[in-house]
Nucleic acid binder design. Sequence first.
RNA 1: GGACAGAUGGGUGAGCUGGCUUAAACCACAUCCCUGCUAAGGAUGCGUAGGAGUGAUCCUACCGAGAGUUCGAAUCUCUCUCUGUCCGCCA
Length: 415
Amino acid sequence: MIDLKLLEKDFDNIANKLKKKKVDENLLSNLKDKFSLLKSKKSILEELQAEQNKKSKLFPTYKKEGKDIALLKKELEENKKKIQDANEIVREIEEDLKQIALNIPNIPDDEVPKGEDEEDNIEIKKVGVLPQFDFTPKEHWDLDSEQNIIDFKRGVKLAKSRFSVLKGVGARLERALINYMLDFNKQRGFEEVVVPYIVNKDSLQGTGQLPKFADDLFKIENEELYLIPTAEVPVTNLFRDEILNEEELPIQLTAYSACFRKEAGSAGRDTRGMIRQHQFDKVELVCITKPEQSDEVFNKMVSCASDLLTSLGLPHRLVELCGGDLGFSAAKTIDLEVWLPGQNKYREISSISNTRDFQARRAMIRYKNGKKNLLTNTLNGSSLAVGRTLIAIMENYQKEDGSFDIPEVLQKYMA
RNA sequence: GGACAGAUGGGUGAGCUGGCUUAAACCACAUCCCUGCUAAGGAUGCGUAGGAGUGAUCCUACCGAGAGUUCGAAUCUCUCUCUGUCCGCCA
């Protein structure tokens, strides 16, 4: 959530920064005014409450001294009505304020490039050598036209479009990749956790998926529960409403989970193949840090994911997202895009974000710094999207007859 | 899913016949003092959020969550959530 005190103090600067994310300045000034209004109405309420408290305490002494309490009582009854009215006003403003504030995205870092959409993202570097073929490389669905590895037809039969079934080598490769990624991340200092795939509203609000992006989530009928769109939600919310010890930071975790997304806004995009599914596997990295640690940890996460791709022999590039393409909660994001020879394109396989204190403020994740409780920073990133890694292997390691090799590092996991 | 019991600060835990509670006490923790060595004792401080003030300090809210009764609620009433125990079901 946006820091309302900062908004009040430094309005022009923040409004200017949020232009990169296309936030309307009028909305922000409205928010700022509401915040000031709330403070003044609240102090009126508190004065009334103070009076009520003070005078209520007179009753025992009045009774002891045998004084008449009728007048005092009448006075307090009237004051009580004033309190109720004032309370109603404060509550309305608070509700209103919260609705606006929760829908304002994070402020991008200063060095985030300006831009509208993914066309304006900046390539930072390319890693690895593109594979050369003396035939025309195929897309993954053409490599497996019999659907012996990825069975899209039956996935649809079981659920609906954008679901699939992995079989044989496909199923084993998926599991091998998950295990390999978790082991790799562990070696880099990330501790593994296993978390629920269903979470409540508070958790989703903490990481920023709610209230704004309810349409992207699968909701459990008749319950305030949702399937997770990413392990980032449960893993980050592990520390919601907690005050951590300074010494335990940075916390560096990794988790495998299935992820569930409605893909509401992407009708018609990537309808073929494994790229965009309603259910997919992902190994995630989540870090909770002190603010001054988060840039260093961010870089560590990026190199972890990039080195993982390199170790699998997958050429890729690092791309810094421009303001317009940045996610709701992110202050800065670097995407890793893997080379898909069948598509002759780089495609996103990992997205690593520093949310600074945006999620921490929503989820109240703090740490004790001497006497003060300060907000942490939270970071998250994929390492990696497993299904996309699987097809990247199929396409990059393909042979003319449609078969493909398994990267060396995975072979012991396939035994 | 059914029955019963419970939810109080970092932990344990009293208060729960409404106002002498400003949430006791103990433990843990921090600083200091005394002592002088398989240790012991003492003093002070020690929840969260918001607000006012240069500051000491003061005000408001919070005893699982939300509503209600009352001049006044940790304490009474209702609803919900969660935890424990027993039963049922289940990998």
